[in-house]
Write a protein that binds this DNA or RNA. Structure first.
Lengths: 145, 145
DNA sequence: GATGAAACTATTGTACC
DNA sequence: GGTACAATAGTTTCATC
């Protein structure tokens, strides 16, 4: 992992569909060399995958919330969470609550329905997102220039 | 937005670096037709962008936490948050706390330092992530098959 | 108005320096 | 890590349904 690798990660984090040729022009390195570095970053698991970022609102999902849940039915809840289309992110946490979920629904009514279901597993507390200032900021801005 | 568009979104959400030819084979449609649909999905803003998903731990970031903050210094805090490399996601929320941050640091010590800085802006409550079960689940599994 | 076919351009993978 | 070339993918145009 040198400065060139950081540059590659930064570029591809910003635009995962960029071609290797275009990248090689940006960082002044030959195309096969960039391909090889990219392959190694994937192989080492530093790059876990490539994802399209979709617009929630344009897909009819107008409500985002974070749900903290206190439950002792851990196994059952995890099985439920896997299958629940509303839950996009799923974390286990320390503290009063043992689960944190990022939940995306059509409206606040669909969120309400979802929360009712959650209450069969335990107690919850919900933060409704009013606006998203930014998401998925590049991690390496401290390592780079 | 028909079933074909949903298929394209699902495929590209799963692997943003897939080629159009490969996609066209998967959904049994000509390459120019898929290219055109992809262009429209981007133009309409349904696809907001493409990102590489990086391994936090392999980049030396071993601690993830969600920080809820209650602050009346909103403008100052937003300026700070933009520049803070630790804050990867930044939301405004309803309820007792007006900000929710996803924070990624090297260790719990660096998290502690970060929280001290946060306290200059207001009161906070922190959930430390023990493990991530899944993140960025495909949104459209209810719309699709 | 969107799809399919074909020619043309760009990118990628491979072999070698 | 670079260069050259063959194989593959992407783009553009035009005909078609």
């Amino acid at each position: 992992m040198d400065q060139t690798d950081y540059k590659i990660l930064s570029i591809i984090h910003d635009n995962a569909r960029i071609t290797v040729s275009e990248m090689s022009r940006m960082i002044a390195m030959s195309q096969p060399a960039v391909t090889e570095r990219l392959r190694k970053l994937e192989e080492q698991g530093i790059i876990k995958g490539y994802r399209a970022e979709l617009s929630l609102s344009k897909l009819g999902k107008h409500t985002t919330a974070f749900v903290m849940l206190k439950s002792n039915k851990c196994k059952e809840f995890e099985t439920f969470a896997e299958a629940a289309p509303e839950i996009v992110d799923f974390y286990r946490t320390s503290g009063e609550y043992n689960f944190l979920l990022k939940v995306v629904t059509e409206t606040s009514e669909t969120l309400e329905n979802f929360l009712e279901t959650c209450h069969t597993f335990g107690f919850s507390s919900t933060l409704v997102v009013l606006s998203t200032r930014f998401e998925d900021k590049m991690l390496l801005q401290d390592v780079m220039g």
